[in-house]
Design a protein around this nucleic acid. Structure first.
Lengths: 190, 190
DNA sequence: TCGTTACAGAACATGTTGTTCTGTAAAAAT
DNA sequence: ATTTTTACAGAACAACATGTTCTGTAACGA
């Protein structure tokens, strides 16, 4: 990819991310984005069809990176509900978030973060459902599979939201513990 | 309140609700609303400062009604986790939703329903936290109170979302059962 | 060096927002 | 029954946002 293209693209992403941490997405105008990115108007539209597509591509870039880093790790084959494993994928994800890789927290903590949470959640759901042995050890028998996957993903997202809103005062290990109790993972609470 | 005012207000609410069930809120313009409500432009702005305020007032009108109907019922003093009580407040809520009171489902099932879900969730959280004996019987010991309340409210909202997306094929009793298992209510799964 | 590509900047048509006017009819007060 | 008040429709309006189209320029790749 052309260096000029790359720089423009990154400048737009950066400006957009900054603005997102400051205000609601509906209040952000293309004019503001290009002003902060120091980019021409026509240039913006050469890269992104609309503001929504910009957001979409930003989400994909961000979350794909996070989830790939989990899937590619060797421990992804461990038992998903083994909360005692120090490298469970959930702990891994919480640690990623704590380090604020890619400034992802700026997006999740801003007021209008629902769409980002949606992307986060659907990526999570895919990850969870691809995991073997996902169900047996949870205390969630009797629920339809998709209900259970949705519930686990939602609970993770809500846990992240709570964590971020409370200024992340818990360690990744602690918050993983909360999550495990919430989804009623066997061996989590006793 | 003046009859004219009431009629105008209701016409706007109705038009807005219809449009919300058809498209994303960001794509709905004031022009469309007043056209469908058959109301003058200045009249709209005499009633609602902006589109966001319209949405806010719609939410309050809708959810306050639902939650009030729960709080005012005599069974609201029963034990919240007694899932054997056929009139648990959760079952009561699911039944309300099934009847589609106030066309609330049109809002919860449309694509951009996040803000409505937010209102729904915060109303729920208030209801849950006002409930005595909310915690003792759940399998969620070891969690901070606000985490637990948030988790229960989120799980309810996500259960509703799942139910609606799956065309509400389950009976209110069944979906209440799912919810009780998900929040690990004692006596729900065994 | 030369053709290609990405860019800035401006100008533009289009559509949306929120305000302000005029005249009219319904409601409330006398 | 009358006056006064209030809510309304309709139109016109300025301010702003969107997305497109032009020109000229500089960076890139062959």
């Amino acid at each position: 990819m052309d260096r000029r293209q790359r720089k423009t693209r990154e400048a737009i992403f950066k400006a957009f991310t900054e603005l997102l941490s400051e205000k609601n997405i509906g209040q952000i105008t293309v004019g503001e984005i290009i002003e902060r990115a120091d980019v021409g108007r026509a240039t913006f539209y050469a890269h992104f069809e609309t503001k929504d597509y910009l957001q979409k591509e930003l989400c994909e870039e961000l979350f794909c990176h996070v989830f790939d880093s989990v899937s590619d790790s060797p421990h992804c084959h461990r038992h998903i509900f083994d909360c005692n494993a120090p490298d469970s994928i959930y702990l891994h994800l919480f640690r990623h978030l704590e380090k604020n890789d890619n400034n992802i927290l700026d997006l999740l903590s801003c007021e209008n973060n629902d769409i980002f949470m949606h992307y986060f959640k659907s990526g999570l759901a895919k990850l969870i459902s691809s995991q073997p042995d996902t169900y047996e050890n949870s205390g969630l028998q009797g629920l339809p599979d998709d209900f259970r996957i949705n519930h686990i993903a939602s609970t993770f997202v809500e846990t992240v939201r709570w964590w971020v809103e409370n200024k992340m005062q818990q360690l990744p290990e602690e918050i993983t513990g909360y999550f495990m109790i919430a989804i009623n993972a066997k061996g989590a609470a006793e």
